[in-house]
Nucleic acid binder design. Structure first.
Lengths: 182, 182
DNA sequence: GGGTAATCTTTACACTGTCAAGTCTCGATT
DNA sequence: AATCGAGACTTGACAGTGTAAAGATTACCC
């Protein structure tokens, strides 16, 4: 039984590494099974087919995603703009360096949106962003500001090189919230 | 020869309808070939494999995308904020109603970025957005503002329901550029 | 006319996800 | 303690995918 948990995790870990190495197209049920050392039909017992594996992987990926944002935030100055920018930089780092995971998290049409684990992990990630916005609305949540920041960084991450050249994200963010006073 | 052009177009048209009917997973080389009335290997002569078909379809889809934005803009009041909002609404309409096409245009990892047709059509689409931003920067282009608007509407389109409830896009846009005076 | 290039079909191959049936192990019940 | 049974996993098969090679057919140009 502990063994079963271990192969389930092994399958998720194998899927993560396949996505990191080979991008969005690198992940395959059979390849993940092979890398985990089990037969090609083993995943069907732990997940509901490929969509199930996708959502399990996305759940883990959201945890790594949150970690990337927190890591950046911890290294930033403790001032509102610097902190929010650091969070967004973590967002952009992850989207750039782990494009395969990012793709499964946000562009995979077969994720199970009712999976409680996935919902919890993604909520945790968004909470980081939300909390970074708080200082700009006097400590009480401002849904419109949160939606704007979130949409902006997400769109910026996906559009990528088309915008970056002429508009670094720090400049974009400075149009949304006031930069720290010198 | 005219026949060859016609089957090439028939393949693209078949791909478009498959994407509209069945979403991103509805498109298949073989299905498009069958719907176009040719054998499953015919597409290989007109496109470089599936990636080639994808970029050809994306090119056409960008034209429809531009059309959706222009249609909305034409029905809007001739005031800066109303026009830019209308353009963005066209953007969001298309992303919602033609999710399959939108996915191929923006989330397909195998598009050929050097295809001149695709580059031209996507540039045409972005020009609409850019021109909608002009009145807010005194008539001279403002790359940072363009990047902000573009990222915001794109991110908003993809994050979709997670944000919409509490933050309609009109409210989001009103944080970026000043609404029209009453 | 003869040849040539393009268009399309046929055939084959490796790979994918999924399903059905069988094997095995281990724990609980009687 | 023997038996049962449920879960984990394998094996084998199937339909469907993209791609490549090789052959047919057609249209066009010299």
């Amino acid at each position: 039984m502990n063994d079963s948990l271990s192969t389930r995790d092994a399958l998720i870990e194998a899927g993560l590494s396949l996505l990191i190495e080979g991008g969005a197209e690198g992940l395959t049920l059979r390849r993940a099974a092979a890398r985990a050392g089990v037969s090609h039909a083993a995943p069907a017992h732990h997940f509901k087919g490929l969509p199930g594996l996708h959502t399990a992987i996305a759940s883990r990926a959201f945890a790594l995603f949150t970690e990337a944002m927190l890591r950046r935030r911890a290294a930033a100055e403790n001032r509102p703009f610097a902190r929010l920018l650091a969070i967004c930089d973590g967002y952009l780092d992850f989207a750039r360096d782990s494009a395969g995971l990012f793709h499964v998290m946000f562009a995979c049409p077969d994720l199970d949106p009712r999976d409680p684990d996935l919902a919890a992990q993604s909520a945790r990630a968004y909470d980081v962003l939300r909390e970074g916005c708080l200082p700009f609305s006097g400590g009480t949540p401002d849904p419109v500001l949160e939606g704007l920041v979130w949409s902006s960084v997400h769109g910026y991450a996906l559009l990528g090189p088309s915008v970056n050249a002429e508009a670094p994200f720090a400049a974009v963010l400075a149009r949304i919230v006031p930069p720290d006073a010198p």
